[in-house]
């Protein structure tokens, strides 16, 4: 007998045939924070700052200028970008390398990556990537040591349930949620920021 048959047989023996109706799940936990957009953005920014991320706010027309600001203040001359990035986001005078299957060593040597995002969660300070063409494959926001991420205010959700439900059409894409730079507390419970993931995260919030 195959392992599958055996395991399923054991489960059926354990549970019997008469399982009764599917058990109900009461979802009366909080789905919304009941905050207006500005309050939500503020909460989100608070959480990001808590993680040491630098946060910029701008409007759609100001994205390129803000990217330039961020690069200047981090002393960077260029970034890797996903193939589907909106070209209007890229300021003059910097070198942007589109990711057409760049090899890992190239990514490792890059100064950082600029990506879009799918959604964010104000209450937990999370950014959600579903790795669309504007967000890029997972490797580009992972290997370079710096991640500059663009988040649209309209995509900021209050709670985890709101965010998860908003992913309905993208559930089977690769999904990465990011809440601050990588961190560990494995040594004497002292929190160290920056382990393997990008050690610096900056966020541009677009209104």
């Amino acid at each position: 007998m195959s392992a599958k048959t055996d395991i399923l047989k054991n489960i059926r023996q354990a549970l019997g045939d008469d399982r009764g109706a599917e058990l109900p799940v009461n979802r009366d936990y909080r789905a919304s924070l009941g905050l207006d957009r500005e309050a939500m953005v503020h909460l989100f920014i608070d959480r990001l700052v808590d993680y040491n991320a630098t946060v910029y706010r701008t409007d759609a027309a100001g994205i390129a200028g803000t990217v330039a600001d961020a690069l200047r203040s981090r002393g960077k001359s260029g970034l890797v970008v996903p193939p589907g990035i909106d070209p209007s986001w890229l300021p003059q005078g910097y070198r942007f390398t589109a990711d057409h299957d760049l090899d890992y060593d190239t990514l490792d040597a890059a100064e950082g990556a600029l990506t879009a995002s799918t959604a964010a969660i104000a209450f937990t300070g999370s950014i959600i990537l579903t790795h669309s063409l504007a967000e890029g494959r997972r490797a580009i926001s992972l290997i370079p040591d710096y991640h500059l991420c663009v988040v649209f205010e309209s995509e900021i959700r209050g709670t985890v349930p709101e965010a998860i439900r908003s992913l309905a059409s993208r559930r089977t894409c690769p999904i990465t949620t990011i809440a601050g730079p990588s961190a560990t507390a494995d040594i004497e419970m002292m929190r160290v920021k920056g382990v393997h993931g990008p050690r610096t995260l900056d966020v541009i919030i677009v209104g």
Partner: peptide
């Protein structure tokens, strides 16, 4: 933590990613 720094969710194989 309110949320751990990273969650990875993936489904099968995605061409061109991973």
């Amino acid at each position: 933590e309110r949320m751990n720094p990273y969650n990875s969710i993936w489904t099968g194989v995605t061409p061109g990613d991973g």
